[in-house]
Amino acid sequence: MNKAFDLAGRAALVTGGGRGIGRACALSLAAAGADVAVIDLDSTIGEELAAEIRKLGRRSSFFPCDVASPDQVDAAIDGVANLFGRLDVAVNNAGVWRRGADETQAPADWDAVVSVNLTGVWLCAMAEMKLMRKNRPAEGKIINIASVGSFIYAGNGAYDASKAGVVQLSRSLAAQWGRYNINVNCISPGYVGNVFGRSRSEEERQRLREITPLGYVQRTADLCGPVVFLASSASDYVTGHNLVVDGGHSLSTWLRPLERDLPPRVDPAGELDDIPVVAGY
């Protein structure tokens, strides 16, 4: 492993860590050497993932938390502090969405999405920063999971606006917290097939392939390298950045299929593989 990407001895946490993108991030950080706390609403999957991380030889525990609750966030971060004694890396991934067009959404739907996706990220980041400032020397990496919905239409107003807020929040916090040697960045995935794609028709999946320059539907595995990069010393001079990881999906005109000369790296069957860790980090 390139030592710039080595996370040995680092203490990390992942919110919404029990499944999907969060699970991939947690396992990737552990594979790179970090101890990883799992924060999630679902105790069953959270405990299972913590046990899986411990099998990799890393320290891990599960902490239940609704990230929209300030008291629960503070309790979870206190638990992480007691477990590790410090915090070096935080991935704020917990998120929700409500199906339906905006004209069908109730104010409660808006509130539910924004309270988790945006307010929850702010609450977690504030608590994480306070713990990172206690490191000696003070430093840390905060990584917020946004979406291509932050700059293109991807679902509905509540979801897209909340993710756009995450991007600008990350930039604002990066500007403020650089004085503590804390880097704040975000990752904007595209449409992640092995998280959401199983409910989609093959026709819809094929349309995604046709308008994505790299030719396949995104997997959670495609986020492993980016999250390790932003967590590691390799990104020490990167802050306030929105790293778009979407296979070029958001570059498409949406008017006609893009041309290909070679088969894509991943075939349709491989799009649904839940491979959270890529060897070699």
Rank of each mutant, 00 (worst) to 15 (best):
M1F: 02
M1N: 12
M1H: 08
K3C: 07
K3G: 06
A4I: 07
F5W: 06
A8F: 08
R10N: 06
R10Q: 12
A12G: 14
G16D: 06
G16H: 06
G22K: 05
L27F: 01
L29M: 13
L29P: 04
G33R: 05
A34G: 07
D35V: 07
V36Q: 05
D40R: 01
D40F: 09
L41Q: 14
I45Y: 00
E48K: 13
L49G: 04
A50S: 15
A50K: 04
A51N: 13
E52A: 15
G57P: 01
R59T: 15
F63E: 02
F63N: 02
F63H: 11
P64S: 14
C65E: 00
V67S: 00
V67G: 01
S69L: 11
D71S: 15
D71Y: 00
D71H: 00
Q72A: 15
Q72K: 10
V73G: 04
A75M: 04
D78I: 06
G79A: 10
V80W: 05
V80I: 14
N82F: 01
V91T: 10
N92R: 05
A94Y: 09
W97Q: 08
G100S: 10
A101M: 12
E103W: 10
A106C: 07
A108N: 09
W110R: 07
S115K: 12
V116R: 04
N117I: 09
L118G: 01
V121Q: 03
M126C: 12
M129E: 11
K130W: 01
R133V: 12
K134M: 12
R136D: 15
A138Q: 11
A138Y: 01
A138P: 11
E139Q: 14
E139T: 09
K141V: 01
I142A: 08
I145W: 03
G149R: 06
F151N: 03
A154M: 14
A154L: 14
G155K: 14
G157L: 06
G157R: 03
A158W: 01
A158I: 13
Y159A: 06
A164D: 11
V167R: 05
L169V: 08
S170R: 04
R171A: 13
S172V: 15
W177Q: 11
W177R: 03
W177F: 11
G178I: 04
Y180L: 12
I182Y: 02
V184A: 08
S188C: 13
V195N: 03
V195W: 03
F196N: 10
G197W: 02
R198P: 02
S199G: 15
R200C: 11
S201H: 07
E202N: 11
E204L: 12
E210A: 15
I211E: 13
T212H: 05
G215R: 01
V217T: 09
V217R: 02
Q218T: 11
Q218D: 09
L223H: 03
C224W: 02
G225K: 00
G225E: 08
V227Y: 00
V228G: 00
A231W: 05
S233G: 09
A234H: 05
Y237R: 07
V244Q: 02
V245F: 02
L251E: 09
R256C: 13
P257L: 14
P257S: 15
L258K: 07
R260C: 14
R260Y: 12
D261T: 13
D261P: 02
V266M: 04
D267Y: 11
G270D: 01
L272Q: 12
D274R: 06
D274C: 06
P276T: 02
V278L: 14
A279T: 13
G280V: 03
